[in-house]
């Protein structure tokens, strides 16, 4: 585990609050935040991953890599993400190394 501790920019947590609404909510101003701090139902784009090589490969194989859209289903340790239509269980110590930004995918149907 040699990856540097990611710098965290303190940001207000979910703009909508946990459990608000149904379906996806695009989160503004998420840049640099770890996915462990995303609220359930929030859609975001992976901007950076600071993990060991072996873990990077495992994440990539599961569809978590820079530029991909993800959504948090359940917070906690481990947490559950939705990636590519399937559920992914993820340790907190890996989740906090995956940085996200607001969803930028051009075909994202959940843009505000």
């Amino acid at each position: 585990m040699s990856a540097p501790e990611p710098t965290r920019i303190p940001l207000p947590l979910s703009p909508t609050g946990p459990g608000a609404g149904s379906g996806y909510v695009a989160a503004p101003q998420l840049d640099g935040q770890g996915i462990d701090r995303l609220d359930p139902g929030v859609c975001a784009t992976v901007s950076r991953i600071d993990a060991a090589d072996a873990d990077m490969d495992r994440l990539k194989a599961m569809g978590v890599c820079v530029g991909r859209r993800i959504e948090v289903i359940k917070r906690g340790d481990p947490m559950i993400l939705r990636v590519l239509g399937s559920r992914l269980g993820l340790s907190h110590r890996l989740a906090n190394r995956i940085m996200v930004s607001a969803c930028i995918a051009p075909d994202c149907s959940h843009h505000p």
Partner: peptide
């Protein structure tokens, strides 16, 4: 070494 952090698909 620490255990590999969990990355696990939860199938339907």
């Amino acid at each position: 070494g620490e255990s590999r952090p969990l990355v696990l698909e939860l199938p339907g």
